[in-house]
Design a protein around this nucleic acid. Structure first.
Length: 187
DNA sequence: GCCTGGATTATC
DNA sequence: ATAATCCAGGCA
């Protein structure tokens, strides 16, 4: 995909990424689940604090990778969209791998399956070994609330998550309304 | 500087 | 239900 394609609105790109091929060298998978993060006004987005050392890339041009470490364990792959200053990005939550459907299920698994890590942060996706290409046409795409962003108030309910309807590689959405990520610190 | 808590996943 | 594991960013 070229710069123009990525420069469009984040919701459009997130929706159209479903069915596309995500390629990294010899590895590739079909994207079956994404989430749109709208910009500084989006209470669920890393962009909500404005540009910082980590998130400045989100405020740059579209078609660039944003990769960050989550929970100290998992690396998450995002694609910046829109034009400079907007702060939009799409999280790739699941890909269908040719051999193993379970391999690309869940955002932490996507980076594992395609060997993407923080060294790819800020990588230009319009040139090089990491890129998106046309793939298949999904029979149906559904939309619903994003996963794991209950802290974001009204923004948590917006239907910014897109997935290939009934595809087996789509991540299982956890039961919402339950927050069990609290870890007690002895103090 | 210190401290909180997370765009998650595996296992208990 | 909770451990694993680390660092960004708010606040003092």
């Amino acid at each position: 995909m070229d710069r123009e394609w990525y420069a469009r609105d984040v919701e459009t790109v997130a929706r159209e990424l479903i069915g596309c091929r995500l390629v990294h060298g010899k590895r590739a998978g079909i994207i079956v689940e994404t989430e749109a993060y709208r910009g500084p006004e989006d209470g669920a987005s890393h962009a909500r604090f404005g540009p910082t050392a980590r998130t400045a890339v989100m405020f740059g041009k579209g078609g660039v990778a944003y990769v960050y470490l989550c929970y100290g364990i998992h690396e998450m792959f995002n694609i910046v969209t829109g034009v400079e200053g907007q702060g939009q990005a799409v999280l790739i939550r699941a890909v269908a791998m040719p051999d193993d459907d379970a391999l690309g299920r869940g955002p932490g698994k996507v980076t594992k399956a395609l060997a993407i890590d923080r060294s790819h942060d800020r990588r230009d996706l319009t040139r090089g070994a990491l890129y998106v290409a046309p793939g298949e046409t999904p029979p149906a795409v559904k939309a619903g609330p994003r996963v794991g962003v209950d802290y974001a108030g009204e923004w948590a309910n917006k239907p910014f998550r897109y997935w290939w309807a009934d595809h087996p590689a789509v991540s299982r959405a956890p039961v919402r309304g339950k927050v069990s990520t609290r870890r007690k610190r002895s103090r």
